[in-house]
Every structure is written in C-alpha cells, then in structure tokens.
C-alpha cells in the first residue's frame, strides 16, 4: 500500500511548502462548506425549535419530513438543483449554475434537515418541567428561548457538527451543480475525484489527508466549544 504512505508524505510536503493551488482549493472548500453550514444553522435551528415546542396541525408530518430529509441522497439533491438551475430550467434566470452559489444551495438542502432534526431532538430531550420553571421565574419570550438553547447546547453543537460533516464530505452534488471548475468551484472532494480519473492516486491520497485534517480541525474546534464552555448560572 505504497500509495497511502506516499500520499501522506506528499500531503506533508504540500502543506509545509504551502502549495498555492492546494491552499486555494482548501480555502475555497472551507468558504463554501462554512457558508452552507451557517445558512443551514440559521434555517435549521429555528425550524427544529419550533417543531419541538409548538403544537399545530400537521406537526407530525413535518417532523417526519425533517427526519426523512436527514437521509436525502446527495446525488438526488444534486440532480434536482442541477435541473432547476439549467439555463432553460425554472430557475435559469438566476444564472447560478456552475457557481459556488449553486453548490451552497445544494449543500444547504442536504444539511439543513440534519441540523433541524438534531435540534428538534436536543430540545425535546430537555425535561418539560424545566420550561415551566424558566417561565415561572419570569423570563420573557426571548430569555426563555435563549435559556432553552443554552440548556440544549450539547445537542445543538452536535447538530452543527453533523451538518458540517454532511457538506464537507459531499462530492456528487458538488460535482453536478458546481462542475469542478478550476479557480471557481473546485473543492477538495471534487479534486480528489478528478485526480483519481487522471491516474494520480498519490496526489488524490494527499488531498484526502488534507481534507481529513481540515474536517478534524473544524470538528475539534466545535467539540472544544461543546465540551469546555461553562454554562452561565
């Protein structure tokens, strides 16, 4: 398995020498997946909280939809977004196909149900008595929500980590709607795919290791935040 060993050595070499192309691709990967994760959190957390706290007609159906969405096959999402963004497709006028924006849209569709689902579970795990207690202490609506989110912090960060994990590992949809265009939509996963096709397994392995490192660093930062920040009393 010399490819794996050589890949590790080349990964080290690329990182130490600061190969500009690899750094650009890595930075772009972080920008696109970071934006997609952020949007997924902004949409997913409120949806998850609303589904956990509110009682309304069709709630069960919506919870099922979110849980279903957590397992959406990325390639299907990619195909849908691709067809929608076609020049002569329904959203063709947006002129977004083969741009980072298109990738972000697909990735948000993949990640936001994951964030919403985890949030929903996290909030529902909180003892209902706690809610009454917070309200009984005279908290207004926003203070109530804020305290609840604080209480569910472990689960919420798990939601962010899972959302980030699902977009950083994505390749099928990214390839379809982004097109793996050099200098524009080429990210680590699509570059790995391309290098395998071009026969350079060592470079593909090296980029894989860089991708793993990047994912580990981001996840570690989130985990540190999850585990070490003291709760305000």
């Amino acid at each position: 398995m010399s490819v794996i060993g050589d890949g590790m050595i080349q990964a080290g070499r690329l990182l130490i020498s600061g190969d500009p192309e690899v750094l650009r691709i890595t930075w772009r990967t972080l920008q696109i997946t970071g934006t997609a994760t952020l949007i997924s959190v902004v949409i997913g957390v409120p949806v998850g909280v609303a589904l956990a706290l509110r009682k309304f007609f069709g709630r069960l159906l919506m919870v099922s939809a979110v849980n279903f969405g957590m397992g959406l096959p990325p390639v299907v999402v990619g195909l849908f977004v691709w067809l929608l963004l076609f020049r002569y497709g329904p959203l063709g006028w947006l002129d977004l196909l083969y741009t980072p924006g298109a990738m972000i849209i697909a990735e948000v569709i993949i990640a936001f149900p994951v964030v919403a689902g985890f949030t929903l579970a996290a909030i529902q795990t909180i003892n209902p008595k706690m809610r009454f207690q917070i309200l009984a202490l005279g908290a207004n609506r926003w203070q109530f929500l804020w305290l609840l989110l604080q209480e569910a912090r472990l689960g919420l960060l798990a939601a962010v980590i899972a959302g980030f994990g699902s977009v950083i590992s994505e390749v099928g949809a990214a390839m379809m709607v982004g097109g793996n265009i050099e200098g524009l939509t080429r990210v680590l996963t699509t570059t790995i795919d391309q290098e395998v096709s071009m026969g350079d397994f060592v470079l593909a392995m090296a980029l894989s290791i860089i991708l793993l490192l990047l994912t580990f660093i981001v996840t570690a930062i989130l985990t540190w935040y999850q585990q070490h920040r003291r709760q305000p009393q």
Partner: peptide
C-alpha cells in the same frame, strides 16, 4: 466553464442549449 461528461451526455447538454 468546462463541464466534462461522456460524449452522450455532453451532446445531450448541447442539444438542450
């Protein structure tokens, strides 16, 4: 913006404009 596929799909994309 180069989009690479097998020739069959490459032609189909062109034929759809």
């Amino acid at each position: 913006k180069p989009i690479y596929n097998g020739s069959g799909q490459a032609i189909a994309l062109g034929a759809k404009g």
